[in-house]
């Protein structure tokens, strides 16, 4: 694999299990309505191992969202190969749950209805759905709001409901497209705690790929952070974070990696 393309700060640990997600020289070019071609990201090659938590970080417009979009199967890359469990991605599917920046709950259904619908799409039999929905809603700490419509919830609660909807289906892969980007600081912290907990609980069972522009968030959550360049996005560097969980921003290792990535990104944004 072409890890040589990435400057590696720490040697990756040996990976006996096959990667769940592989991107091979993936490029995505968009055509604007004006006919102009814009490269969203270019020549991306990386693997995500089973159970790993990967964060993609980079300046706005570096193609993080597009990268997640091709893994989710919502968009097709212009060239290159995207493999999930060694099979090319041909479209979206319930094996890859997605948390969007907006909670994307269906406004005509209650919180419970949203989770139930997702379970139905995932083919969970009727008899099991009620209990599973209730379990995940309770785990996200929003059991008091199960019967409410999404618009009656705060943004943070909505994103928790969206997380319940995504996790209830027991997805092998959870993709997050800046899922906490629109939240206030407190709600964001709360969600980060929940995701850290989920990461520990589901160790080895769920693979996470999150895009974020928040360096602290990336370092708190991820086993590995890929730093992307300004548009058109390419991989700049890779950071491995082995700090024990749950992490806080006060951890020395966390703080050190945060400042390193920060410096790197500042340089990237300031370059002409």
């Amino acid at each position: 694999m072409s890890r040589a393309a990435i400057a590696t700060r720490d040697e990756p640990a040996g990976a006996p299990t096959p990667p769940t997600i592989s991107l091979r020289r993936v490029t995505m070019t968009r055509v604007r309505p004006t006919g102009e071609h814009v490269v969203a990201f270019e020549d991306l090659t990386f693997d995500v191992e089973r159970g790993e938590f990967l964060c993609l970080i980079g300046p706005s417009g570096c193609g993080k969202t597009s990268t997640l979009s091709v893994i989710a199967g919502l968009e097709r890359p212009t060239s290159g190969e995207v493999l999930v469990d060694a099979r090319p991605v041909s479209g979206p599917g319930p094996d890859r749950a997605v948390l969007f920046q907006e909670p994307a709950l269906f406004p005509w259904l209650s919180v419970r209805g949203n989770v139930d619908l997702a379970l139905r799409f995932a083919g969970v039999p009727d008899a099991e759905r009620d209990e599973r929905a209730a379990t995940w809603i309770a785990r996200m700490g929003i059991e008091g709001s199960a019967a409410l419509q999404p618009h009656e919830l705060s943004t943070g609660m909505r994103q928790r409901a969206a997380l319940a909807r995504a996790l209830a289906c027991d997805p092998p892969i959870l993709l997050g497209d800046e899922p906490f980007g629109a939240l206030d600081a407190l709600a964001r912290e709360r969600l980060q705690d929940i995701v850290q907990r989920v990461r520990v609980e589901r160790a080895g069972r769920t693979t996470f790929v999150f895009a974020t522009h928040n360096v602290r968030e990336a370092v708190l959550l991820a086993d590995r952070v890929l730093v992307m360049s300004a548009a058109p996005g390419t991989l700049l560097e890779e950071f491995r974070i082995d700090a024990p969980r749950p992490r806080t921003l006060d951890d020395v290792l966390v703080a050190r990696v945060v400042s390193e990535i920060h410096d790197l990104l500042i340089g990237e944004v300031e370059e002409p």
Binding site: A72, G73, L74, G91, P92, G93, P94, R96, A97, V98, F100, E102, A104, F106, L117, A118, F121, A122, G123, R165, C169
Partner: peptide, 12 residues
């Protein structure tokens, strides 16, 4: 489009 995208990623 967000609802359709969300629906498709949920397997609809």
């Amino acid at each position: 489009p967000l609802y359709v995208r969300a629906g498709r990623t949920l397997g609809a």
